[in-house]
Amino acid sequence: MAPASKPRIVQIGPLSGSPVAQPLIDAHFEPFRLWEEADPIAALRREAGSITAIVTTANYGCTRQIIEAMPALKAICSWGVGYDSIDIAAAREHGVLVSNTPDVLTDCVADTAWGLMIAASRRIAQGDRFVREGHWGQVHGSFPLGNRVSGKKLGILGLGRIGEAIARRGQGFDMEIRYHNRHARNDVPWAYADSLTALAAWADFLVIATVGGAGTHHLVNASVLEALGPDGILVNISRGSVIDETALIQALQQGKLRSAGLDVFEHEPQVPAALRSLDNVVLLPHIASATHETRAAMAELVLHNLQAFFETGKVLTPV
Rank of each mutant, 00 (worst) to 15 (best):
V224F: 14
R239N: 02
I243T: 13
G261C: 06
P230Y: 12
L278I: 00
L248T: 08
P272S: 14
L262T: 05
G232D: 10
I237K: 03
I233M: 14
P269S: 01
T246Y: 03
G232L: 07
L228D: 06
I233C: 13
E268R: 01
L234R: 05
L252D: 10
E245W: 00
I237W: 11
E245M: 04
Q250H: 01
I233K: 15
G240T: 07
Q253T: 12
E245T: 14
G232W: 01
S277T: 10
G232E: 07
H267P: 02
V242N: 11
A227F: 10
R258M: 09
L262C: 08
I233P: 06
E226K: 14
E266N: 01
D231N: 15
Q254R: 07
G261E: 12
L262S: 02
Q250R: 15
K256F: 02
D263P: 08
S259V: 08
V242W: 00
A251Y: 04
V235T: 09
V242A: 11
L234D: 05
Q253E: 14
S223N: 15
L278D: 04
L278T: 09
R258I: 12
A251H: 14
L248K: 07
L248I: 08
N236S: 07
G232N: 03
E245F: 00
R276T: 09
S223P: 03
G229Y: 11
L262H: 05
D244T: 05
D279T: 03
T246K: 06
A274V: 13
Q253P: 06
L248N: 02
I249H: 05
V242Q: 13
G255K: 04
E226W: 02
I233R: 13
V242L: 02
Q254D: 14
L225R: 01
I243W: 00
G232V: 03
D231Q: 15
G240E: 11
Q253H: 07
D279K: 06
I243P: 01
T246V: 14
V271T: 04
G261W: 07
T246L: 04
A247Y: 01
G229V: 11
D263F: 06
Q270N: 12
L248M: 13
S259D: 13
V224M: 13
A222Y: 00
A222M: 02
G240L: 02
L228T: 09
L278A: 04
G229A: 13
A222G: 03
L275Q: 07
S238G: 15
G229M: 12
R239V: 10
L228S: 11
A260C: 13
K256Q: 15
N236I: 05
L275H: 00
I243N: 12
T246A: 14
G255M: 05
L278C: 10
A273G: 04
Q254Y: 01
E226A: 12
L228F: 09
L252P: 11
S259Q: 05
L278P: 04
A251E: 07
L225W: 02
Q270L: 11
E245P: 03
L262W: 03
P230C: 14
A273I: 00
I249M: 09
R258D: 03
V235S: 06
L225H: 04
A274W: 06
E268P: 02
T246Q: 08
K256G: 15
G232T: 14
S223H: 15
A260Y: 09
S238A: 15
V224C: 02
L275C: 13
A251S: 08
L257D: 01
D231S: 15
P230W: 06
Q250K: 05
L262G: 01
D279Q: 13
S277N: 15
N236M: 08
E266D: 09
S223L: 10
